[in-house]
Amino acid sequence: MKFPYTEKVLEHFKNPRNVGKLENPDGKGLEGSPACGDMVAVYLQVNPDTQVIEDIKFESYGCASNIATASIITELAKGKTIEEAKKISWQEATEELGGLPPVKAHCSVLAVEGLRAAIRDYEEKHGLVSEQEPTTVDVIRSRLKHVMNPMAGL
């Protein structure tokens, strides 16, 4: 197997961790990338006392690195508090996977955004934030801007 991916990416792609849905999630996010059309959904179960993410699941409609980055994000987030999980960056996820091809950096951004959307949903539902910025295509584009030009590729 000789894809432009690291062994770790391939491993997470082949055997993704925490795939699926949570029945009654405390937080739920669905993000899509206008760069490629991929989507990722993240479901959270949060301990209301400790704010620790006790369970996390994801679903992906996307490329191999979308699946792998979503998988690694769930591993990174599980057991962390909401505040800690918010700080997980796409660079951290990418590093954890041993790197991604430059053209695939946005997949990692998408996975992180999926997690953050789920956290925002949790915070909103639990009255932890006052207003939520709707995730429009423009918002996603601006988030992706530092990674790539979403329409033209790299």
């Binding site: 894809f3 760069a35 490629c36 059309g37 991929d38 996307g62 979308n66 053209v103 790539m148 590729g153």
Partner: peptide, 18 residues
């Protein structure tokens, strides 16, 4: 490919230019 079968795709995710 992991099952030994080689094909191609027109999806944006795979092409080098997205």
């Amino acid at each position: 490919d992991m099952q030994g079968v080689a094909v191609s795709t027109g999806s944006a995710c795979s092409s080098k230019s997205l």
